[in-house]
C-alpha cells in the first residue's frame, strides 16, 4: 500500500474500522514508515481516550484470569514463576525456564491439594484476638508489617510444620496485602529458596519467593482470599507449582 493511501486510513484503523485485508496492508506499511507509525500511535491514544469508560469489575473475573495463567500446558511455554518479594527481587528471565517442564506431580488434583494440606500437614488456626501486641516484638524490623498488625480487619496466619512447630507467621490485611511477621525457618543452602503458596479455590497459587533465610517478605493477593498458606522448598527462581511437600502450612481464618 502506498504511503498516502495508508495515511488516509490510519484514523479508521485506530478505530478498528477497516477490514482484515486493509489492516494487513496498512500494518505492513506502518512497519516501515516512521511518520505513519507516529500518527497511528497518536490516534490510538485518542481512540483509547474515547473508549475509556470504566465499569465495575465482575466478581471472580480476576480469579478466572489468574487460574488460566496456570492452565498453560504448552511445553514450549512453561508455566510461569509468579513472584513478588520485596526482600529478594527475582531476576531470572523467562528464557531461563524454557525447556523446564512444569512439574505437576505433587498437586495434580485441585481438590486433593486442599485435602492433602489439611490432612497431611498440621494446620494451625490463627487465634486472632489480641494477637497484635504479642507479635510486635517478633517483627523483623518491618514497619509495613507492624502497621498491618494494627490495621482493622487484619488476619494473622500461623504456619506450622507437621510436628506442630511454629515456623512462620504472616499478617494479611483486607486489601490483599500480606507481610511476614516472624520466621523460624532454617537457612537453606544456596540454590534453594522458600516459596510461599496460597490455596485459592483448591489450587496452589504462587505468592512470593522468600529466599534462603526469610526476613522481610511482602506480597499482594488479588481476588479471592486464600484458604490456606503453605511454604515449600524450591530451586532458586521458584517453581510454577509446588514440587515438594509443604514444610509449613496454616489455614487462613475468615
Amino acid at each position: 500500500m502506498k504511503h498516502d493511501e495508508a495515511y488516509e486510513l490510519l484514523a479508521a484503523l485506530s478505530l478498528d474500522a477497516v477490514d482484515e485485508h486493509e489492516r494487513r496492508l496498512i500494518d505492513e506499511h506502518v512497519a516501515t514508515c516512521p511518520k505513519c507509525r507516529s500518527e497511528l500511535d497518536s490516534l490510538l491514544e485518542v481512540a483509547g481516550a474515547l473508549g475509556n469508560s470504566v465499569d465495575p469489575l465482575p466478581e471472580g473475573l480476576w480469579t478466572s484470569i489468574s487460574t488460566r495463567i496456570y492452565d498453560n500446558d504448552d511445553a514450549t511455554h512453561p508455566m510461569p514463576v509468579l513472584v513478588y518479594d520485596s526482600g529478594e527481587r527475582v531476576t531470572s528471565s523467562r528464557r531461563r525456564h524454557l525447556g523446564r517442564p512444569a512439574p505437576r506431580t505433587v498437586f495434580s488434583s485441585l481438590g486433593a491439594v486442599a485435602a492433602a494440606l489439611i490432612v497431611v500437614l498440621a494446620v494451625n488456626l490463627a487465634n486472632q484476638a489480641n494477637r497484635a501486641s504479642n507479635l510486635q516484638h517478633q517483627l523483623v524490623n518491618d514497619d509495613a508489617a507492624n502497621a498491618a498488625l494494627v490495621t482493622p480487619g487484619h488476619t494473622v496466619v500461623d504456619l506450622a510444620s507437621t510436628t506442630q512447630a511454629d515456623l512462620a507467621e504472616f499478617v494479611l490485611v483486607p486489601d490483599g496485602r500480606g507481610y511476614l511477621i516472624s520466621s523460624k525457618l532454617p537457612t537453606l543452602p544456596a540454590g534453594d529458596t522458600y516459596q510461599l503458596w496460597g490455596v485459592i479455590n483448591g489450587k496452589p497459587i504462587s505468592i512470593a519467593l522468600m529466599g534462603t533465610s526469610p526476613r522481610k517478605v511482602t506480597f499482594t493477593v488479588s481476588g479471592s482470599k486464600p484458604t490456606l498458606l503453605g511454604i515449600t522448598v524450591e530451586p532458586t527462581g521458584g517453581s510454577p507449582t509446588p514440587t515438594s511437600a509443604m514444610v509449613a502450612s496454616g489455614a487462613v481464618e475468615d
Binding site: G51, N52, I65, I69, V83, V90, S93, S222
Partner: peptide, 22 residues
C-alpha cells in the same frame, strides 16, 4: 516479563475496569 503475577494483578486493578467497560 519476569512472571510476576502480582504485577499483572496491579495492572488489572488499574486498567481492568476500562478494558472490561469498553
Amino acid at each position: 516479563g519476569r512472571y510476576d503475577e502480582v504485577a499483572l494483578a496491579e495492572v488489572y486493578r488499574r486498567h481492568g475496569g476500562a478494558v472490561f467497560g469498553l
